[in-house]
Every structure is written in C-alpha cells, then in structure tokens.
Design a binder for these strands. Structure first.
Length: 558
RNA sequence: GCGCCCGUAGCUCAAUAGGAUAGAGCAACGGAUUUCUAAUCCGUAGGUUGGGGGUUCAAUUCCCUUCGGGCGCGCCA
C-alpha cells in the first residue's frame, strides 16, 4: 500500500526537531505545535517551518541562532529529503528530491477514488442540518446557497473521515401552518365564486392560488363553502404535502439528498417537548414571570432570557428547537452543525445557551451563517422581494443556468461573504465561466486518453512506467498540485469552508491547461507517452474526486 | 442605541490556524493555433489591504478606535 509521502516526510522532520529541542538546554515549558507548511514561493523549498521564531521569545535568543541549533543537530535519514536551509528571520526550509513527486503519482493510481480522503474525523458522528425552510413556500436562491454549502460541507466532512448525516428540519406545525392552510382554503373558495375573506397575514403568493387550483382539479367543489374542522385539516395537510414535495423535488434536481427529514410535529406527538421542559425545570433553568415560562439563557451569555412557553400556554418556536436539539444529541451525534441564513444570526447565542443548559458543551453545536445572495442581470440587481414580481426561485435559477453552474457559483466564494451571482456570466459558455474551465480540463483529458487508446497506447497497469521521464517544469507543478488535495480537504473540514476546495480545483485545472499548451501528451516516444498519460489520468482522478465532493458533474466531452 | 458579518486592483473575489515579494478571473492593451478540443495559453498595466492607533521578529489576518455597507435585536417563525 502506497502511503502518503508528504505525511511520512513531515513525521520524520517533526520527530527529529522535537527530539532535538527536548535534548537541548532550552528552558521551555511547552513546545508549541511544530507546523510544516508548503511555502507559496517555490524558492523557499517544499516544506517550511517557523518553529525557531516561535521559540525565540521564550528563549530570548535570536531566531536564526535557534534555527542553527535545530538544523545542526537534525538527524533525518530519509532519502527523500534533500537540502535544508535557513533564511532570514528564522525560517527553516526543506527541499525534497524529485522522487517524492513520483510517489505521489503511485499513491493516486493506487487509491483512485479514495485519493484525497483523510482520517481527521476518526469516525466521529456529526450531523449537518441545513436548508430547513418553513414549508410555506418555494425555495429561493438564498436557500440554494445554503443547500450547496451544506451538501458540499457534508461531503467534505465525509472525505475527512467523519460519519455524517444530513438532515432537514420541517416546521410543519403551529400558527404559520394554520395560516397557510387557510390561505389556500380562501383562494379555493374564491376560485369557486365564494366570497370569503383572506386572512390578515395570510400567504399571498401566486403559488397559493396554484395549489387551490389543484384542489379543484382533484376534489372539485367537495370543500366549497365549508369552514369546519375537517376541511381545515384537509387544506392544511394538502398544502403542506404539496409544498414539501416541491421542495424535495427542487433539492433533488439540485443534487441534494438528505438522510433524514425531521418533522417538528413529531416532537409533539412523542411528548419530547414536555420532556425537555421538565428536564430544564429540574436543572433549575426555568422560571415564571408575567404568566410565561422563561429560560435563563443569560446564564450562558445571552443578552436576555427567552420565553419558552407563552402566557397563552403555547410553546414558542424556540421551545421546539430546544427539544429538537436534545433529540439530536440523544441520537448520538457528538457534533452538530446548523447552517442558517444570515437573518438568523441573532439566534445563535440563545441556541447555544439552550444546549449548555441541557448539559452539552458549548462547542458541540456549531452554527454556520450563510450570507445573502444578490442576483445580477444586465449589470443590475434583480429585486428579490416577493411582491416585486421579479422573485426568482431556486427552480427558476436551475432552469436558467443549470445545476452545475448554480452549485459552483454558490461554492466559489467564502460562505460568509455576500454572493453576487451574475446571471449573464453564469450563462456564458466562455472563459469567463469557471465551471466550464474546470469541466473542460476534465473533458480534455478524457479525450486525449481516448485518442491514445485509438492509437494503440493503452494504460496498462502491468507495464512498467518510467515516471522519471516526467521531468518538465509544468509536470512538477502539476504533480505538486495533485499532492495537495489532502491538505485542502483537511483545511476545508476544519474550517467548514468548502470554497477552499473550489479555489483549489480552479488552480488544478489551470495547471493542467498550462501543461497541455506547452507539452504534447501523445508523442513519438511510447515510453514518454505512457508516463504522460499516467500523469493526466491522475489529474483526471483528482478532478473527478473534487468535483464529486462539490456535487458538480464531470462531462467526458464538451 | 446594542450585537453579528463584511470593507483588498476599475469590477467580482482569493490569500494556507499570524509568515517570506498580497494573488486569480473579468474589463484594457499586446501576443500564441500546419498540434491530443482555442470553452485554452503567454505577456503588459493595475494596490498606502477604508482611515488611525496597538500587540509581534512578522498583521490583509489578532486587539482598540473611527468611517462606510449588510443583517439582526418579539410571549413571530
């Protein structure tokens, strides 16, 4: 089994440095974590550490002197490590012999679809809950960004060795749902010529009328001019089901599949809410005031205490959420990630407080805030107000630009910065569009491999490949890029930022395109051709694995 | 008023868990194709990282302050 070359070299170096420091006369309490990273400037070597500078303050010595001591006593017997040098402030840089790059190729060939996986999570159970839009209307583009981020992050965490479950929480309960049912009921009656007053804060969207029309199609005037319990229940359920199906379908078309759909009303049916209130009562975090029941969230740093049961004895949304989160922990998740839109950020503190009141550590719950999306058309902002009439749903967006482009655009920037989504760029099949740029690299590789096969050069595992023939600058660059996938996955998983992977993919595609332009893959020299084919096939594998994580498809021809 | 996020090239954004000369794309200008897909590649130009302090050997990154933009501050969800 080919193992991770870089990881091995790192270990060798780290062990030696650490041993070295320990054996010295240095008076240090705790040795800081020694970090080896890849310098952006290649004249600084393949790996670099800043440990000498980190130690300099405590030791009151010049960083360069410390670096000298470390390097002089370095005992590294790894054939792959070449030169070691010290530079200005106190960096220690390691140059590796070119051999290591060929080992990367071997590793990729051997691991194939598993290349890029790391065991950071060690099987830890983690839940990612996202989208969770109230089922009172269709998904809009902002929800699409949450969906893309949540889905990609889940895939990244899986690749990083966590056991991940994706969940959607359905608020299928309470006043808003009653109101939703009523809205359709009134529209239904209106369509049938009945005069019935529309609820004051009812849902006014056109989709409500569409649902009413569907009721007519299926049930004609069966519920006409009725306002009894049965008809109300009927409209509520019909509408809920209808909208939820739409949401599920939209998400499916967007490439997002959830492992679980969790219904709020199930919490009530199973008495979970009552249980959690009693638990909090026992723990002494609840008190009565002004006829309502309050949770002492201020104990855990919230601005003010929050109501869980209203004066009218109806629980708040917050109460359901507490019960819901308790249920998550009871299902054995060690870590919970909630992904919310930016308009909910004010909710983080109270949710974290609730989790702590339940007895779980603060950082067991992580909340990821996804900033808003602005759509641009013809250089102008597209109004997103529901009333404005220009409202664009996720479904519209997918229809207009396609799933791949939509997903990529949502993932190419950091989730905590606003996304400016230019529809014209997204639709252009040109170099402006980064999605095509990356997919094109993949298609190009597939095309070359096919061509080589037709010419009789097949990638044969049994043949000995002379990887040493890969000695061009562009080839080294490309292999180095290939080697850094694992670091990228690791970083994305630790910071919960999928955009690191997106950026990486673009760079990788760029390295390949450059290589392609300068060198021919299929040459007169069969051995060279074989070596180069292996290289681009490895590139294909890495592109494939990364695009799969992002949920963007891989076309073999374009 | 209080809290959170953001401010980097003309525009949209990056910047490895504080690191070395702040990088891409678009737009502008100039080049490359008898070649495995030009949806590509190369070059030029473009910056006081909003302003001002501080911490550090080292700050776009951390702290304080100020300005500008977004969002949130219900017994709504």
């Amino acid at each position: 089994m080919k193992t991770d070359v870089i990881a091995q070299v790192k270990k060798t170096i780290l062990d030696s440095i650490e041993k070295n420091i320990k054996q010295s006369n240095f008076q240090i309490k705790i040795i800081p974590e020694i970090i080896l990273l890849t310098p952006k400037n290649k004249s600084h070597g393949d790996l670099s550490t800043n440990i000498a500078m980190q130690l300099s303050r405590e030791l009151k010595l010049k960083p360069l002197d410390i670096a000298h001591f470390i390097v002089d006593n370095l005992n590294i017997k790894d054939s792959i490590i070449g030169e070691v040098e010290m530079v200005r402030p106190g960096f220690i840089n390691f140059c590796l012999k070119e051999n290591w790059l060929y080992q990367v190729i071997d590793e990729i060939r051997e691991k194939g679809e598993d290349y890029g996986k790391v065991n950071l999570g060690k099987g830890k159970k983690i839940q990612v809950e996202f989208v969770s839009v109230n089922p009172t209307g269709p998904l809009h583009v902002g929800h699409g960004k949450c969906a893309a981020v949540g889905d990609a992050l889940s895939n990244i965490l899986k690749a990083a060795g966590y056991k991940v479950e994706k969940e959607y929480y359905i608020n299928d309960q309470g006043r808003q749902i009653d109101l939703l049912g009523q809205s359709v009921q009134v529209r239904y009656n209106n369509l049938l010529g009945e005069r019935m007053e529309f609820p004051a804060d009812g849902y006014k969207g056109e989709y409500i009328v569409d649902i009413a029309k569907e009721v007519i199609e299926k049930f004609q005037d069966k519920y006409k001019d009725r306002d009894d319990q049965e008809s109300r229940e009927f409209f509520k359920e019909f509408t809920l089901k209808n909208i939820l199906e739409g949401i599920k379908e939209d998400l499916k078309n967007f490439g997002v599949e959830f492992d679980a759909w969790f219904s709020e009303s199930s919490l009530y049916k199973q008495n979970k809410l009552q249980e959690v209130i009693e638990l909090l009562q026992q723990k002494g975090f609840l008190y009565k005031e002004k006829g309502a029941l309050w949770l002492k969230t201020t104990v855990f740093g919230d601005e003010k205490d929050r109501v869980v049961i209203r004066k009218n004895s109806i629980p708040t949304y917050f109460a359901s959420d507490i019960a819901y989160h308790q249920d998550k922990y009871q299902r054995g998740f060690e870590k919970i990630i909630d992904i919310w839109g930016a308009d909910h950020h004010g909710y983080i503190q109270r949710m974290k407080a609730a989790v702590q009141a339940l007895g779980y550590p603060e950082d067991s719950l992580g909340v990821l805030i996804v900033q808003f999306v602005t759509l641009i058309r013809d250089g102008k902002e597209v109004g997103m107000s529901t009333r404005g009439g220009e409202f664009i749903t996720l479904r519209d967006l997918i229809k207009e630009v396609g799933k791949d482009v939509a997903r990529y655009f949502f993932l190419m920037r950091s989730h905590d910065s606003h996304t400016e989504f230019d529809l014209d760029v997204a639709k252009s099949q040109s170099m402006e569009n980064p999605v095509y740029y990356i997919q094109y690299a993949y298609a190009r590789i597939c095309s070359i491999i096919k061509k080589a096969e037709q010419a009789g050069v097949k990638m044969d595992k049994s043949k000995v490949i002379k990887l040493q023939l890969l000695n061009q600058e562009e080839e080294f660059e490309l292999i180095k890029k290939l080697s850094s996938l694992k670091e990228v996955i690791k970083k994305s998983a630790l910071t919960w930022k999928p955009h690191f992977l997106t950026t990486y993919l673009y760079d990788l595609a760029s390295s390949f395109h450059k290589y392609y332009t300068v060198h021919r893959i299929i040459t007169e020299d069969e051995e060279l051709t074989r070596a180069r084919l292996i290289l681009i096939d490895c590139t294909r594998i890495v592109l494939f694995n990364s695009l799969k994580i992002l949920g963007v498809s891989v076309p073999e021809s374009m």
